[in-house]
């Protein structure tokens, strides 16, 4: 392909439209609204049988119905609780293991290969084992979610610590910082932006593992709703669960995103 140069547009004197908050919100909502309209049209015009694709209204009715039975709130609450607890445990352990492996050569040699191998195990492979060991209770789900949250944090923290500017670390040492003081004064602040992007990845992975856990062995939760509705052929409820997972995932990620912005302003 020959090299083409993009036509030189007039230099933007004003703040670009795409960086305005209102534009971002409206722009981001545009596609979901379009999808909703298209969905409504296909079902209203009978292009697809409603037994295959229920209309938006039917999904809404299913939501109201489940809410009236008290199941919707329960499922959302229990799933969110599992994600948050599992995420907290997994992220904390990931932070600790990542720090250890990133800072200590010995720990790197001893731990990194094993952790790398464990990381390679697909999430679903843990489910039968966890169910046998930890039964159907909360522990098995939370453990799986924690496993999911652990690795993104562990990997990003270990990588980031290994790539902290050597010159800064040396300057810290030259001014008498060692051990914990060096870590808190130089290394930790230097990796905070990467730690937070690791946390965001971990949160996404936590939701992923939650559904895996709930699909295969649960008596409540959004994953359970998916599994049971799949068996019953309740496509409206399946769509409802998918939409709720999307909303919850996006919401928790946005909260972390705000935190990330703050941290980058403060530490980078």
């Amino acid at each position: 392909m020959t090299e083409t140069i993009a036509p030189n547009t007039a230099p933007a004197v004003r703040r670009p439209l795409t960086s305005r908050r209102s534009v971002r919100v409206v722009g981001g909502l545009l596609l979901p609204v379009l999808i909703l309209i298209a969905w409504q049209l296909t079902t209203a015009l009978g292009l697809v049988s409603i037994s295959q694709l229920p209309s938006p209204a039917m999904v809404w009715i299913a939501a109201v119905d489940l809410f009236d039975r008290g199941e919707l709130t329960l499922y959302v609450a229990i799933s969110t609780q599992r994600v948050l607890i599992g995420f907290a445990i997994g992220a904390a352990l990931g932070l600790a293991a990542g720090s250890l492996v990133g800072l200590s050569r010995a720990a790197d040699v001893l731990l990194a290969p094993t952790l790398g191998a464990i990381r390679a195990v697909p999430s679903l492979a843990w489910v039968p084992l966890l169910i046998i060991w930890l039964k159907y209770g909360e522990e098995s789900k939370i453990t799986l979610v924690a496993i999911g949250a652990f690795f993104p944090v562990y990997t990003t923290v270990a990588q980031a610590l290994r790539h902290v500017d050597r010159q800064l670390v040396e300057a810290g040492r030259a001014f008498g910082l060692r051990g914990v003081r060096l870590f808190t004064a130089v290394q930790l602040p230097a990796v905070i932006p990467s730690v937070i992007s690791g946390l965001r990845l971990a949160l996404a992975q936590a939701w992923l593992f939650l559904v895996a856990a709930e699909l295969l062995g649960a008596s409540m939760g959004l994953g359970f709703l998916l599994a049971i509705s799949g068996t019953n052929g309740r496509i409206d409820r399946i769509l409802l669960a998918i939409i709720l997972l999307a909303l919850l995932g996006k919401l928790t990620d946005a909260i972390l995103g705000v935190f990330e912005k703050w941290a980058i302003r403060k530490w980078a």
Binding site: Q167, E170, A171, A174, A185, P189, K266, W267, A268
Partner: peptide
């Protein structure tokens, strides 16, 4: 005390 070639200040 060392004054390095680069300032090596902690950016945060």
């Amino acid at each position: 005390a060392v004054g390095f070639q680069e300032p090596r200040l902690l950016p945060w």
